[in-house]
C-alpha cells in the first residue's frame, strides 16, 4: 500500500500580503490513507487544503497528484474533492441536482447515468428520501452529507474536509462523522482538518499538528495524542483539555 504517494507536497510556501501563512510544508499522502490536521486557529490548516484544491495560488514549492503537478494542463480538475465548513451547496438546485448537475456540466455524463450515480450516492449517505428537497429544507448535517455525496460523484482521488462539522450543532456532527467513516471503509484517501480530537484519533492513520504555518509534528494518533514529542503539541492538547 505505501509505495508512491498519491499526493506529494514539497517546499510549499504561501503568504498573504507579506504574512507567511505556510512555510516549507512537506507532506506525502498515500493511497487509502486518512490524515487529520490539527492545530490552533490561524495555523494554516485550511489554507493548506485550499492550496491543494487550487483555491489559493502558492508562492513556491510543488504540489503533485499522481506524479503530475496540480498546475499541469493534463491534470484533471476533478481529482481533488473538497467538503467545506459552510457546505456551499447550490441553493437553486435540489439535492439530487446538486450532485448530478456538476457531473453533467463538467463530467459530460448523460442525465440517466448521472441520475443513477446520484441516487446511489444519496443512499450511501442515507438521504435517498431527500432527492427532491432544496438545501434550505435540510438540517446542517444533512446538507453536509449531500456535500460529501456531491464531492464523491466526481470520482476524486482524494477528498479534503475543511472543518466539516464546525458549522454544525454537536448532535448533528455524528451523522457526518458516520458518513466519513463509511468513506474510510471504502478506502477513500482523505485529509481532514478538524477540531474534533476524538474523531481524529479514531479515524486517522496519521495526525499532523500544525502551528504558525509549519508542520510541527506528525505521527500515528497514539503517538501524537499520548506521547507528543514537541512542547507546542503538548501545550495545544493541554489548552484544548484533550490531555491533562
Amino acid at each position: 500500500m505505501k509505495d508512491i504517494p498519491i499526493l506529494k507536497i514539497t517546499g510549499l510556501n504561501k503568504s498573504f500580503s507579506g504574512f507567511k501563512v505556510l512555510q516549507e510544508i512537506a507532506l506525502d499522502v498515500y493511497k487509502k490513507e486518512i490524515i487529520s490536521i490539527i492545530g490552533p486557529s490561524g495555523s494554516g490548516k485550511s489554507t493548506l487544503l485550499r492550496c491543494i484544491c487550487k483555491l489559493e495560488f502558492i508562492d513556491s514549492g510543488r504540489i503533485s497528484l499522481n506524479g503530475n503537478s496540480i498546475y499541469d494542463k493534463n491534470c484533471s480538475e476533478t481529482k481533488v474533492g473538497m467538503v467545506f465548513q459552510q457546505f456551499n451547496l447550490f441553493p437553486h438546485y435540489t439535492v439530487l441536482e446538486n450532485i448530478i448537475k456538476p457531473l453533467m456540466t463538467v463530467g459530460r455524463v448523460n442525465k440517466n447515468a448521472a441520475m443513477e450515480i446520484g441516487l446511489n450516492l444519496l443512499s450511501k449517505v442515507k438521504l435517498e428520501d431527500k432527492e427532491d428537497s432544496y438545501p434550505h429544507q435540510l438540517s446542517g448535517g444533512q446538507m453536509q452529507r449531500v456535500a460529501i455525496a456531491r464531492a464523491l460523484a466526481m470520482n476524486p482521488n482524494i477528498i479534503l474536509f475543511d472543518e466539516p462539522t464546525s458549522a454544525l450543532d454537536p448532535e448533528l456532527s455524528g451523522e457526518v462523522f458516520q458518513a466519513i467513516r463509511d468513506l474510510a471503509g471504502d478506502g477513500m484517501t482523505m485529509i481532514i482538518v478538524t477540531h474534533e480530537m476524538s474523531f481524529a484519533r479514531e479515524i486517522s492513520d496519521r495526525i499532523i499538528f500544525m502551528d504558525q504555518g509549519r508542520i510541527i509534528e506528525e505521527g500515528c494518533p497514539e503517538k501524537i495524542f499520548d506521547k507528543p514529542e514537541m512542547e507546542r503539541t503538548l501545550l495545544f492538547l493541554k489548552r484544548i483539555k484533550f490531555i491533562d
Binding site: C53, S76, Q86, N88, V106, R150, M154
Partner: peptide, 11 residues
C-alpha cells in the same frame, strides 16, 4: 463559497 465550490467541482 458558491464560486469556490463550483471551481473545485471543475466548473
Amino acid at each position: 463559497g458558491q464560486q469556490e465550490a463550483s471551481f473545485v467541482l471543475g466548473y
